Computed example of a mutant assay.
Amino acid sequence: MTEKIGFIGLGTMGKWMALNMLKAGFPMRVYDINPAPVRFLAGQGAEAAKSPADVAAGVDWLFMSLPDTELVERVVFGENGVALGAKPGLILVDLSTISYIPTLEINRRLKEKGILFADAPVSGMEARAKEAKITVMFGGDEGLFQKVRPALDAIGNQIVYMGEVGSGQLTKLINQLLFNISCAGLAEVLPMAVKLGLDPEKVAQVVTTGTGRSFAADFFIPLTLENRFDEGYPVKSAYKDMISAAEISAHKSIPLPVVNATAVTFQMAISEGYGEMSKGGLIRVFERLLGTEFRKKKEAK
């Protein structure tokens, strides 16, 4: 493999995606504001860069995995950004989850500089990133998709070409909205079950095996029973999906009543101090309102 890959954003997901590309045999050049994952990957054979511009200047393909739209825009167009160091023909693939409308604008600006852009957000938590079993939703030129496919195959086991630029972010948003709705539904209904006298563990047994089953239920209910809200993406960070949905709803005149109700639950959780908890922590809003908790019964001593 002769293509040299750059990777910017070595957080919870990015570190493992970069490592798996490195293991697949791609020469790697990496950057993050946190030096720890840079040192980790340098120890595995990657080359450390000094800035996003420095990464872009020395690679053929560049991947990014960053927390939000604002940071992506700053890393690409800001001081010492990718656009400053990139040569025409650079392929830039954004693995971040950001808003759809800004994605189109990023593509427009990069096209003017001769930089080839694609959005390819991923789905799957840290464990799947480690195992190279995430889902990748690619939006961009199909020829470009086929060209970088070997790198994508190194990080995921479900690589789906969705269409033109922006299609990846739209698909990820659809997936996330359905997940968020499920999380908000659990948060609202499970405390009601306890308030009305049902046993939380028995309710959990039914919900995780019956028609009310969902990925959200399977993942969060066991953790909630154990009073654990530390696994999974924080509510405050995940709220960006609700903002993106509201932007699209307003621009395209698409009514989203259930999505809007879910956004209110997220807002309540953040305003009440639960924003750093996982989405399972949404339940704390309704537990407080009803004066109850969906937890395992404490064993008598």
Rank of each mutant, 00 (worst) to 15 (best):
F215P: 04
G197E: 06
V136S: 10
S167W: 00
K202E: 14
L173D: 05
K130S: 00
V206M: 03
F138P: 03
Y161A: 01
K113W: 02
L186P: 00
P121S: 07
G210S: 15
P121W: 04
M162L: 14
E142Y: 07
E142H: 08
A151D: 04
E112Q: 12
V165F: 03
E126P: 01
F117D: 03
A216T: 06
F145Q: 12
I159Q: 10
K133T: 06
G197L: 05
C183Q: 08
K147E: 05
G163Y: 01
V189P: 00
A151K: 01
P191Q: 14
A187W: 07
I155D: 09
A132E: 06
S214I: 11
V206K: 08
N157K: 11
A204F: 09
E126S: 13
I115E: 05
T171M: 15
N180S: 13
A193N: 11
D141V: 10
G212E: 00
L198C: 15
Q205S: 15
D153I: 12
E126Y: 07
R128E: 03
T208G: 14
L173H: 08
A154G: 04
R149H: 10
L152D: 09
I181W: 13
G185L: 15
F145K: 02
E126G: 02
G114E: 09
T135W: 01
A132Q: 04
N175W: 11
Y161M: 07
L116D: 00
R128N: 02
V148A: 06
V206E: 04
A184K: 08
N180M: 12
V194G: 08
G166A: 13
L152I: 14
E126A: 14
G143F: 11
I181T: 13
I134Q: 06
L198H: 07
A204D: 11
M137Y: 00
C183T: 05
A184S: 11
I115A: 08
T171S: 15
S123F: 06
M125L: 12
G168M: 01
G197M: 09
S182V: 09
T209R: 10
P191F: 14
E188R: 08
L177F: 13
K111H: 13
N157G: 02
A129Q: 01
F117H: 04
G163F: 04
L116A: 01
Q205C: 15
R128W: 01
T208S: 15
S214P: 11
S167F: 10
L186W: 06
